[in-house]
Simulated scan of single mutants.
Amino acid sequence: MNQTADLTEKTLSREEKYQGSFLSLHVDQVQLPNGRTSFREVVEHVDGVAILALDDRNNVLTVTQYRYVIGKTLLEIPAGKLEPGEDPVAGALRELKEETGAVPDTFLPMGVTLPSPGCLSERLYLFLAKGLHMESQQLDEDEFLNVERIPFNEMVHRVMDGEIEDSKTIAAVLKAKVLLNL
């Protein structure tokens, strides 16, 4: 019979390595459940939001932008970082309007995803937006992207075919597929 073991790791020491504007890096020495020690490299990152926005024809508002870290453009749903103390709903509505100009009538939470919990602290809040009214974009001065409308079922196929690699977009599309039964 399996017993539930305590899998908690205890922090023994921390060495700060880098402090940036929205992330920091530290290396912790930890005590493992078996009493041995190991090291954990941790990126503390501000939380974020991502929004799957559906228009009245079930098209998804997407953004394509160059992602320097991986050296290519990606098709994604609108997303962004939360400001310190900002409510995820307010942040998501702000990011949706800034990136696409869309303002929704209906705005539903679809849960939280942890993009890479082995090393990254970020929580990403997912939302579904419907009943869109279009206003003007308000991009940040260092933000360059293209907005496109793609049929929802095509997004599902692109996710399942591996064409869409962005994890927040994959999670939101599949959650919306189940939630809306489309």
Rank of each mutant, 00 (worst) to 15 (best):
R57H: 10
R57T: 03
V60K: 05
T62M: 00
Y66D: 07
R67M: 11
Y68V: 10
G71R: 00
G71E: 03
T73W: 02
L75G: 00
I77F: 00
I77M: 05
P78F: 02
P78V: 05
G80Q: 11
L82N: 01
L82T: 04
E83L: 09
E83M: 10
E86N: 15
E86P: 04
P88K: 14
V89L: 06
A90L: 05
A90D: 13
A90G: 12
L93Q: 09
L93N: 06
L93V: 07
R94Q: 02
E95I: 11
K97M: 03
K97G: 06
E98Q: 08
T100Y: 02
A102C: 13
V103Y: 14
D105K: 15
F107W: 10
L108D: 11
P109Q: 02
P109C: 04
T113Y: 15
T113Q: 12
P115R: 07
G118T: 11
L120R: 10
S121C: 06
S121E: 08
E122P: 06
R123N: 05
Y125E: 11
L126W: 14
F127W: 13
L128N: 04
A129L: 08
K130F: 09
K130I: 02
H133M: 13
H133I: 13
H133C: 10
H133N: 09
H133E: 11
M134A: 03
E135R: 12
Q137C: 12
Q138M: 13
L139N: 03
L139T: 04
D140Y: 15
D142G: 13
F144D: 07
V147I: 05
E148T: 05
I150C: 00
I150G: 01
P151L: 06
E154C: 02
E154D: 07
M155T: 00
M155F: 02
V156L: 01
H157D: 13
R158C: 04
V159H: 00
E163N: 09
E163F: 01
E163A: 12
E163H: 06
I164M: 00
I164C: 01
E165M: 08
E165S: 14
D166R: 11
